[in-house]
Simulated scan of single mutants.
Amino acid sequence: MSNIQSMFDTMASRFDSAAAGDLDAIFQYKLDEGDAYYATVSGGSCNVQQGEHDDPTVTLLMDSETFQEVLEGETDGMQAFMTGRIRAEGDIMLATRLATLFPV
């Protein structure tokens, strides 16, 4: 199993269904190196899959180091976005909910 895959497994294991409520969204992750993954949040559950979704709600672009730092709580996701380490396309406001959906 790749390091990237294990990072997404870690993220999925932290999913907070109470924070999700009735959210229905697809978070596409594109890392500068490695494969793309997406997290489907629907009905209070989260499913992470490898690949690119046809119609993601928001797409997040970053390098794997930034993703790992955000996952480990070393870097604040919002701060990384403001400094250009994370780029977002689509429903950018939805990306602001990631910290509550996947708490460190």
Rank of each mutant, 00 (worst) to 15 (best):
S6Y: 13
F8A: 00
T59M: 14
D63F: 02
L60V: 13
D55S: 14
T59A: 11
A12C: 15
G43D: 14
S42P: 12
G43V: 00
T75S: 09
A25F: 05
F67Y: 09
S13V: 13
M1N: 07
L71R: 00
T75K: 05
D16P: 08
G84T: 02
G51L: 01
Q79E: 03
D32F: 02
Y29I: 07
M82I: 01
G77I: 05
D55K: 09
A18I: 09
S17A: 01
T10F: 11
D76Q: 06
D9F: 12
S13G: 13
F27T: 03
Y29C: 04
N47L: 09
G84K: 13
A20L: 15
Q68E: 05
F27K: 12
T57M: 13
R85S: 12
G77R: 03
E65M: 06
Y29S: 14
G21T: 03
Y37F: 10
A12L: 12
F81M: 01
D35W: 01
G73H: 08
R85G: 01
A20Y: 02
F67R: 02
G77S: 00
F81R: 00
T75I: 06
A80F: 10
M62C: 00
M1W: 06
G73Q: 00
G77D: 01
Q68D: 06
P56S: 15
F67P: 00
S13A: 13
I4S: 12
Y29T: 08
Y38W: 14
F15H: 13
Q28E: 02
G73C: 11
K30P: 02
T57W: 06
A80L: 00
N3Y: 07
G51Y: 08
V48Y: 10
D35I: 02
S13D: 15
N47C: 10
G21H: 01
Q79R: 14
K30H: 09
T75V: 04
S64C: 07
L71S: 09
K30Q: 09
V58M: 09
T83N: 10
A25T: 04
V70I: 09
A80K: 11
S2P: 02
M82L: 15
V70C: 11
E69P: 00
S42A: 13
K30D: 03
A12Y: 12
S45Y: 02
Y37W: 07
F27G: 08
V48C: 05
